[in-house]
Design a protein around this nucleic acid. Structure first.
Length: 303
DNA sequence: AACCAGGCTGCGC
DNA sequence: GCGCAGCATGGT
């Protein structure tokens, strides 16, 4: 019997796949997925084996084709679950749009970015590594560093002419050396941070499950910031992108501050009071506010 | 050519 | 507890 190699995932109201694709593509070279026309192709490690799939936008759903790997019901379920997490498909963002509508300077976003869902990094290890890599360097360079890491320590799947990479396994990265990373233009510190983090995941001292079992928000932050190389910014970034905690705002983020000033929402980068006031109004939707502000950085021209 | 990048650690007070 | 130098390097 032939395996069914394609399936659909229903999408919520106010979800626009093209907006999400745009964000995935942005101006950067992200090696963890490939935008091909109006579709995105991604390799994903499942419990048994890695798979490669393509997502296209359909009428009221996403159309998912399995390109490589076995189409067992278990695999289909895992891919379904990953995509749901990736694009935050279980969330109805209408309440966020209501809040945007109340804020004069942000109301335009409901039209301009209509249907943009927060694209996440479901894999906690990857989210934390990416946070560390991106610390204090520009994104163009950060994506380049990530690509070098992934192409050296990750595995890949092949489809047609192209290769699609999987993020390195913690154990593989843990076995790397600081000098190897330094040769890839990682700083001494970042190399140490990444190897240390990889060890924690490889030995099971840290995992997404462990973090999810911590119920108190501050305790989750603390569990992360206790790890060398992870400060409050990286902790919140990962809690937002991986665990989808709405209140996990990466305060102090360079892009966030830049956007807040550009949109005329705070006087200057030190206007903590103005920022607190704004985020209080978006309680429960703080991470979406952050995400849309990041999105606004790519607008053609600020006023 | 400064100044900025999706910051963090370790130290001194 | 708070402030700050130092980190390393590419972009603009």
């Amino acid at each position: 019997m032939k395996q069914q190699r394609a399936f659909t995932i229903p999408i919520p109201e106010r979800f626009n796949f093209k907006e999400c694709l745009w964000f995935l593509n942005r101006d950067f070279d992200d090696c963890m997925h490939a935008i091909e026309g109006d579709t995105v192709v991604k390799a994903l490690p499942l419990t048994n084996q890695p798979v490669l799939f393509r997502i296209s936008g359909a009428e009221h759903s996403l159309y998912v084709e399995l390109l490589e790997g076995d189409a067992t019901p278990e695999h289909i379920a895992e891919i379904h679950s990953f995509i749901t997490a990736w694009f935050d498909l279980d969330r109805d963002i209408q309440p966020f749009y209501t809040l945007l509508g109340k804020e004069k300077k942000l109301a335009y976003m409901a039209e301009s970015f209509n249907g943009l869902h927060l694209t996440g990094l479901p894999d906690l290890f990857e989210a934390l590594c990416w946070g560390i890599i991106g610390q204090q360097i520009n994104l163009t360079f950060a994506y380049r560093l990530k690509r070098r890491l992934v192409e050296r320590y990750g595995t890949y799947m092949t489809s047609g002419e192209r290769q699609y990479y999987l993020f390195p396994e913690p154990a593989v990265l843990a076995a790397a050396s600081v000098d190897e990373l330094r040769a890839m233009q990682y700083s001494q510190r970042k190399a140490e941070y990444l190897l240390g983090l990889a060890s924690l995941f490889a030995t099971g001292q840290m995992s997404k499950g462990i973090l999810e079992n911590i119920r108190i928000f501050a305790a989750r932050q603390q569990a992360l910031t206790a790890i060398r190389g992870i400060g409050i910014w990286t902790a919140n970034y990962a809690l937002m992108k991986s665990l989808r905690m709405p209140e996990a705002v990466p305060y102090g983020d360079a892009g966030l501050l830049q956007a807040l000033v550009a949109q005329g929402l705070i006087r200057d980068r030190k206007d903590q009071a103005g920022m607190d006031k704004l985020f209080r109004k978006f309680r429960g939707w703080e991470m979406y506010l952050v995400f849309y502000l990041w999105r606004s950085l790519s607008l053609p021209q600020q006023v």
